[in-house]
Nucleic acid binder design. Structure first.
Lengths: 163, 163
DNA sequence: TATTGTTATACTCTATAACTATA
DNA sequence: TATAGTTATAGAGTATAACAATA
């Protein structure tokens, strides 16, 4: 390593992803709820990822861990259904959490097909820290978009839910 | 087709993805804008996918085609920046649209590194139809969540943008 | 030196079909 | 017969690093 300065390429690639696009016409997109929800989600997640990174988890895994914390002994299919994941996709996700010692599963005597999932001590300790940080970040988002509007947002989602 | 009934497995797998999760505690998730935006986006996209399916396009490609329709001769990097895509990821996406005869690129005399992208006649004809259908669907979403709230949603996204 | 488009690559998320062991 | 978990697989979406041509 003779301090070669050659391997540093692309120092900052697309840091300007959300720059005001010079003179671009977005057409009808800004009037579409689908576009607006997506843009909002992208922006919030961009702020969320650096928070999760130190813990080596992703938004989806955070959702799973929250489910485990608030529903000890929950079944895999229940976690998947609650978060809108396919059962099949939940398998490797849970495997990863178990391998990292954050979650564990126990047999379920009354139904030997199923499993009861729990957060481990390590998993719970991690979640206490992560949840506090996420809570803080989400609050900063709420402050930005006006707390009253957060209620309206929840209302919108509810209305999109009932069939 | 001797009416074999064996190959029909998993007739409906997770059609109940968004059922009311029996007794599951979502913890603090419903109070997080990040969670709410994501749930909203998932629900809207689930309605959007069947609309795009007949045309063989996906939401991201629709966004690109909209950009091309309203910005004839736009550059690849501009499309990517406007939609929050990485330049590198835009390449195969544009290749696909060209291969299917929906878009074409022309050299750009003033900057020979770049390209000018246009919708083809076929691309434009398709977009006229798709855009009308999407417009109709997005309106049905707006009706559900209350038109006034759509304005608030746009406001929220705008507030998440500046910085 | 910096930028545009490009290649290569990898990881996450999502989706479908089909298998197993139980019920 | 139906359900819970599982395996295998494939396609999008997203991310980073590095290169050639051009500015």
């Amino acid at each position: 390593m003779t301090s070669s300065a050659e391997t540093e390429d692309e120092l900052d690639d697309d840091l300007h992803v959300f720059d005001a696009p010079h003179q671009v016409d977005l057409g009808p997109l800004p009037s579409f709820p689908g576009y607006l929800f997506r843009q909002a989600q992208i922006r919030v997640y961009h702020g969320l990822n650096p928070i999760f990174a130190p813990y080596g988890i992703r938004p989806t895994q955070f959702g799973v861990l929250i489910m485990l914390k608030y529903n000890p002994g929950i079944r895999p299919s229940e976690v998947a259904a609650a978060l809108g994941l396919k059962r099949a996709n939940f398998v490797p996700l849970l495997d990863d959490l178990r391998r990292r010692g954050l979650a564990e599963t126990l047999p379920r005597p009354e139904d030997r097909r199923s499993r009861a999932i729990y957060l481990t001590k390590e998993g719970l300790e991690m979640m206490v820290k992560v949840e506090a940080t996420v809570q803080e970040y989400e609050r900063s988002i709420m402050d930005r978009i006006d707390p009253e509007h957060t209620g309206i947002l929840a209302e919108m989602v509810a209305k999109l839910s009932d069939t």
